[in-house]
Nucleic acid binder design. Sequence first.
DNA 1: AGGTGGTGAGCTTGGTAATCTTCATGACGT
DNA 2: ACGTCATGAAGATTACCAAGCTCACCACCT
Lengths: 259, 259
Amino acid sequence: MAVEGQEHLDIVAERPQRRPRVQKNITRAIASDICAEIFPVGTFLPRENDLCERYGVSRTVIRESLKILESKGMVRGRSRVGTVVCNKEEWNILDSQVLEWIGERIFEFDLLNCILEARRAIEPAAAEFAAERATVQEIADLERAWRDMRDGERDVAGFTEADVAFHTCLLKASHNQVFLQLVGIIQAALKFSLHASNEAAERRDEAIDIHGELVEALRMRDKSAARDCSMRMLDLAARDLSAAVKRHRPAGAGLLNNP
Amino acid sequence: MAVEGQEHLDIVAERPQRRPRVQKNITRAIASDICAEIFPVGTFLPRENDLCERYGVSRTVIRESLKILESKGMVRGRSRVGTVVCNKEEWNILDSQVLEWIGERIFEFDLLNCILEARRAIEPAAAEFAAERATVQEIADLERAWRDMRDGERDVAGFTEADVAFHTCLLKASHNQVFLQLVGIIQAALKFSLHASNEAAERRDEAIDIHGELVEALRMRDKSAARDCSMRMLDLAARDLSAAVKRHRPAGAGLLNNP
DNA sequence: AGGTGGTGAGCTTGGTAATCTTCATGACGT
DNA sequence: ACGTCATGAAGATTACCAAGCTCACCACCT
């Protein structure tokens, strides 16, 4: 973990000949450090000049990174005073970049439960809209994603990817811009639920069946069937989620013995 | 409103002695110009140096502004090529700053309908959760907001503010982080629905009653009543919305005769 | 002669650095 | 207790270098 703090330095130092996207890396580095509570919520970040030293970049890069983080509600710059880390409630957790930066720490945020609740509200509604609005092309895309799920049943990464694609297509097919924006949280949810329940292969069979049923319901333009499939899908997701959470916090008090 | 386009110039030009918050203003100015399609979707922005001239600020400010816009999905910087305006589907329309920048043009985005649909999915669910999870303090806050609505019945601005506060409190009381993030779109929806239906005062009476009923339902921890109130509330909102849209597009075919 | 591919100039963004301005803060003096 | 001023950190400007994407041009091969 002494190495971890220097990670970004390596990125810069190891390739002096090429300077590949410093900005993005530094932003991610600072964001990760915030998520890791190296810079805890409510405290001030080091002065900009100190951040330059710490990450080995110029002040411009630091400032642009801070601007990005500020625009996502993670920090707030107080003029001539400093930059303070905001409460997690203020973070734009619907932003997919923020979710990426949080990464595995999503388990410590009590977020996956919230996301599941939100999905229960949103996805059945989206499925209904999709039943009446999806184009034939969109239904074809959904079916393709479903086939990819079926074919990728053995391969966890491939299966997850196809699952994400399926739900993304579903939201697209709802023809509602707001729902579509929520694809980020659903991605995060699928990523961390499935990754943990990969031994429960029989569940994937079940999931694949339901996804197939949903495609069929959309094709029939059957709104209530679509809603029903979506809800059953989420019941499965709920089971996976609780398995994932258990697995991630085996002792039940896993917060205490982290590295 | 012809002045509005030059606003940022004024800020810089009119007070050469004080330079207050250039950054924020410039970011808003560029964002507004993008929304106004002065820089249309799919085209390149002017070179950074030209933007400096146009807005009368240094390149650093421009670059930081572009970074912010990029982080919200409005533009994409292509290294050594230029900055291109993204499709509106890629914009983070759940971001409250983006919604602010869009402002009145929200009517041209076909967004209010989407938001209403999303609210129908979300708010009843949030109301149910609030019924079982709201603290007494939160219910008190809701009631206070409700009283403010009642007292501010004559004053459109005050009424809207109280209405926004009410719905914000409701989402808070649902104790779901994801729902809470959606306060931005609901604010936008209320702002533009009410502002247009301010002559229909009798509707506000009705709205106030329903809001009061909802508070009562929460106090009784009655989930189904809470959900029901929320849905009736949204039926009213739907009526207001169609009035607002009609009012904003009087000819009914406003899309056809733009340049 | 014509098409193909390599090459280099020029332009544009990415990044660095030094410098100045503006004020939020807190210590100091009245 | 209150006003004043020094201080230091962020806001902003400027200038410059680095690097790579484009494109036009020219040589070379067919």
